[in-house]
Nucleic acid binder design. Structure first.
Lengths: 199, 199
DNA sequence: GTCTATAGGGGGATAGAC
DNA sequence: GTCTATCCCCCTATAGAC
């Protein structure tokens, strides 16, 4: 598009501000982060933020919805691939740890604030995305049991929660760029998940 | 003690108010809960709360420290028992799910607010308790590997985080008093943890 | 696109009456 | 032990100058 360049100029500032805000929301929580905090960290005054965004809520909204659009596109790619059930499960676990690596702030915000934000209508999509994610995993686990790759005595609902929780909660302690890579964590978690810790 | 009865009378009111506050802190978050919310839910006015407590911070402080004292006494009992390594691990997992069942508010507050509260000096004990908990689990896992009960190729630090996270995050969805008991969840989680989901 | 200035509301906490 | 009344601060958001 020929209009891309000026639009990108304005957009890059939005993205920059949102990135700063995301870091603060992730670190201190949405409610504990003031618009002054965000402005300070951005080197401007709080009033100036409102030239870019309607409200603090709009900021976190844009942060979360942008991230989730990307994440679910990635899930879809795995789902529609021709991998077998077990490989799809492994791939979805790896993909989640990659998301934690690439977008730690966004994952943290979703983990910590979804319950609170979900009480507002404008964030109804968070619950929808949760349902969508559950559907993905239940399908994969059902396929896994049916194909004989997984134990048939599993409680599928509990297993889904177990996987979902263990994967995403890692955002609480994982720090990108250190020795322990997200690939290494995914590998260790997959051996525990698939084969257990028992000798 | 002969002074117990009047003290208990005053104390029971404190406990009652703290229980109400804990429910709100757990549900809405510490920062999202106002002292007026707590007072409303208690049937009194906000100013009256300050006859019982110094501040909102004092309330959450007392909620968390009381709970943790009890929890760590229970861990100690398992540690000093004469169970073997694997049985101790199983018992600690069960004990954690029991804590979620008996004190869901307290666990939720600790899970959701520890990072934020930990930035204040008066909550330094939260970090100390975390270190203590880590020491318990690392000891158990090391013993498990040494005794041959656990696989020797495990990354102990990662395994510890895996167990800690999976156990406590269940507070996000577990609801006491429904069909799915905490014992059933502990049993399912232990089979996954110990033997994996793979066929 | 940012600043100055400020409105308007809600928050934690206090003092003293009952 | 609770209520009445209120202080003071900090918060989000706005209006208009530059």
């Amino acid at each position: 598009m020929s209009a891309a360049t000026p639009a990108e100029g304005a957009n890059s500032r939005r993205v920059e501000l949102l990135h700063i805000a995301a870091g603060l929301f992730a670190e201190k929580g949405f409610k504990n982060t003031t618009v002054r905090d965000i402005a300070d960290a951005s080197g401007i005054l709080s009033g100036s933020l409102y030239h870019h965004f309607d409200s603090k809520e709009s900021m976190v909204d844009e942060i979360l919805s942008t991230f989730q659009d990307e994440l679910f596109a990635a899930y879809d790619a795995v789902l529609t691939s021709d991998l077998d059930a077990r490989a799809k499960i492994e791939q979805c676990v790896r993909l989640s740890f990659e998301a934690i690596d690439k977008h730690p702030h966004e994952v943290a915000i979703f983990q910590n604030e979804a319950a609170y934000l979900g009480t507002f209508e404008r964030f109804d999509y968070l619950a929808e995305r949760n349902a969508q994610s559950r559907a993905v995993w239940i399908t994969l686990l059902d396929d896994g049991v049916r194909s004989g790759a997984l134990r048939s005595d599993l409680d599928i609902e509990l297993t889904y929660r177990f996987i979902r929780d263990t994967v995403w909660v890692a955002v609480k302690w994982y720090r990108p760029g250190r020795k322990l890579t997200h690939e290494a964590i995914a590998a260790q978690y997959l051996t525990i998940l698939l084969d257990g810790i028992s000798q």
